[in-house]
């Protein structure tokens, strides 16, 4: 039925000789995205593309996808981030990096510490080699990416349901709890006169860590106008920017 309505709308508007407004908006957004991707590629920058059709992040360079990070689930509260180029302005839960201590000059060290007497009978001390590095496993699995302009991309990780591990009560009721908490948070933000929007992405813990690693502060993220895809896939009924307006008319499926 929805498709029939859409078809009728398209046929009607084409007979009338006018270009559908939502199609024009879609073309404009596509143009903005292509321009942004072209500019990034010319600068030889690595960027991420939120591929809504395949439910994954594409790590891209020069228009080529070199790696992907799968998205298990996507939820939104408020309008989606506007389609186009977004810069990661900040991240939370930044892991502490190791700062290598420079030893003081020999003279100072000798003055500060008297040399310990060496026991000739003691066995030689074998130092165990330890890697002191910030690795992908040190990255957080639940975090927020703050976009320039105030949008928030919340990354949560949930273990796969079929991995044999028993899910905790909090994990079982995670979705209804999220909805209730967002409603309350919305009310609070309303009093503060601050708009509140959130795009929540659920990934596997390993993929969440890889995404954190791949998106340092200042990196570019391209968000397409995939509202139609989102609505079709997740049955969302919110309105979110021009390309969605027309589609959300038919998004009564739940």
């Amino acid at each position: 039925m929805r498709h029939l309505l859409l078809l009728l709308l398209l046929v009607g508007s084409s007979l009338g000789g006018t270009f559908p407004a939502f199609a024009l908006a879609d073309l404009t957004v596509k143009n903005t995205l292509l321009q942004a991707e072209y500019d990034l590629s010319r600068k030889k920058q690595i960027y991420l593309y939120l591929n809504l059709e395949k439910s994954q992040f594409d790590i891209r360079s020069s228009g080529m996808t070199v790696s992907t990070i799968a998205i298990k689930e996507m939820r939104t509260w408020g309008p989606l981030p506007e389609p186009g180029l977004h810069i990661i302005a900040d991240k939370d839960r930044v892991p502490e990096r190791e700062k290598i201590q420079i030893p003081p000059p020999e003279g100072e060290e000798a003055a500060a510490k008297p040399a310990a007497p060496v026991d000739p009978t003691a066995p030689p001390v074998v130092k165990k080699f330890e890697v002191h590095a910030t690795e992908v496993t040190d990255m957080p699995t639940n975090y927020s990416l703050i976009l320039e302009g105030g949008g928030v991309l919340v990354i949560k990780s949930l273990p796969a349901e079929d991995d044999g591990k028993k899910r905790t009560l909090a994990q079982r009721f995670e979705k209804p709890l999220w909805k209730v908490s967002r409603a309350l948070h919305s009310a609070l933000q309303h009093y503060k006169q601050e708009p509140f929007t959130e795009l929540l992405l659920i990934l596997s813990p390993e993929d969440a860590q890889r995404l954190y690693w791949a998106l340092p502060v200042g990196s570019a993220l391209l968000i397409p106008s995939g509202c139609a895809t989102l609505i079709a896939r997740h049955g969302l009924s919110f309105q979110a920017g021009p390309p969605c307006v027309s589609v959300s008319l038919f998004s009564n499926r739940r």
């Binding site: 957004v29 509260w77 309008p79 186009g84 409603a183 919305s186 009310a187 309105q239 979110a240 021009p242």
Partner: peptide, 26 residues
């Protein structure tokens, strides 16, 4: 919460529309 969320959405809509189409003149 839901009422405020609805009103917030209604306020956001024109702004989102305007800024999404802003930027480089296409």
């Amino acid at each position: 919460g839901l009422v405020f969320y609805g009103s917030h959405l209604a306020k956001q809509q024109p702004a989102a529309k305007a800024s999404a189409l802003a930027g480089k003149p296409a």
